[in-house]
């Protein structure tokens, strides 16, 4: 295993400490228990947004704490949901009187830990709270008979749009409903060229031959739909966009937000090339690319690969997307 680390036991702490120091103008880090919150605190009367989950997906979620997006993020160990004490302490720190919205990716661990935190918070506080579960990953078929779909890169879009709404004064119920609409309007499909390696495991989560890819891979290196032979970017993007559009995805005429997301080990040059392919394919389908985002936003440690997300957007969502944001990983308008 080749990683820029000291010991596998300190990866999270040292990386988080570096993150906090590099962005001390935007965030502050609380250590016992661990959470990241806005340096300036949450404005009184604003709904507080909290997300979190396993680490290894950087910049998700701590990189999205700041004006116009999250109020706090709770980083768990690598690929392991954070624990309820983190969420509880974060909620106490950022609740500004308008309630707390938990944004949770749909994994059993995340769901259960956030549920426990919400129960504990409910017992201790009068304040309102609500949860948005994200589950944009279309790779999981038959989702009715399982845990359901996974929450992946679409979570970033939910956090941005709901973050802007909260900043604009939307109340808790409105934020929750909006978050659920953005999630429902989003579909993501991922592909891996190489496995990720969990530091503490010391070896790749799965093995791929030199001529193989994992289509529909999860952001924890969970196996996907099927193992396929290496494909060209155009064919790859076509299969991914087909999977997204198939069920309840965007149709001809729909304006969409197109996110091409790197998994951590893929250079920007390739991501822009995939974006080019995705854009052409969307246009062939009659979709209008209203906004675009290309880069590493929801990663899987050092995995080489990418995901494509399409979110059907209307004017309201676009307005919130364009609203100012000032976080470590997304910044515009300020």
């Amino acid at each position: 295993m080749k990683k820029l680390i000291n010991s596998v036991d300190n990866v999270l702490n040292e990386s988080l400490r570096g993150f906090g120091a590099a962005h001390s103008d935007i965030v502050s880090v609380n250590w016992e228990p661990k959470f990241v919150q806005r340096a300036g605190g949450t404005a009184k009367g604003k709904v507080a947004l909290i997300s979190g989950g396993g680490s290894g997906h950087e910049p998700l979620h701590a990189g999205f704490v700041g004006q116009g997006m999250l109020d706090a993020a709770c980083p768990g160990e690598v690929f392991t949901s954070s624990t309820p004490d983190q969420m509880l302490a974060a909620a106490q720190a950022v609740d500004a009187g308008a309630g707390v919205l938990f944004i949770v990716k749909n994994y059993s661990g995340d769901v259960m830990n956030f549920e426990m935190a919400a129960e504990m918070y409910g017992e201790m506080h009068e304040g309102e709270q609500a949860t948005v579960l994200t589950n944009d990953d279309v790779a999981v078929e038959d989702s009715l008979f399982t845990q359901g779909r996974r929450g992946v890169a679409g979570t970033v879009i939910v956090e941005k749009i709901v973050g802007a709404a909260a900043e604009a004064g939307a109340d808790l119920a409105t934020c929750k409903a909006l978050g659920e609409r953005v999630n429902a309007a989003s579909g993501t499909m991922g592909v891996a060229l190489t496995s990720c390696t969990v530091p503490a495991a010391g070896k790749p989560t799965f093995e791929l031959a030199e001529d193989e890819m994992e289509m529909g891979v999860g952001i924890h290196g969970e196996p996907g739909r099927r193992r396929v032979k290496l494909m060209e970017a155009d064919a790859l993007a076509a299969e991914m966009i087909e999977a997204i559009c198939k069920e309840d995805g965007p149709r001809s005429g729909d304006p969409v937000l197109l996110l091409v997301n790197g998994m951590g080990g893929t250079p920007l040059m390739e991501l822009y090339l995939v974006y080019d392919a995705a854009r052409r394919l969307c246009e062939e389908r009659g979709l209008t690319i209203a906004r675009s985002l290309v880069g590493d936003y929801c990663t899987s440690l050092d995995m080489a690969g990418c995901s494509i997300t399409l979110t059907k957007v209307g004017d309201e969502m676009l307005g919130y997307w364009d609203a100012p944001v000032h976080t470590a990983a997304l910044r515009w308008g300020v």
């Binding site: 624990t83 661990g109 259960m112 426990m116």
Partner: peptide
């Protein structure tokens, strides 16, 4: 366990 494990197994064994 709940406060140290995380993941699915933390809340379940907890």
């Amino acid at each position: 366990l709940v406060m140290s494990v995380g993941g699915a197994s933390g809340p379940l064994y907890g």
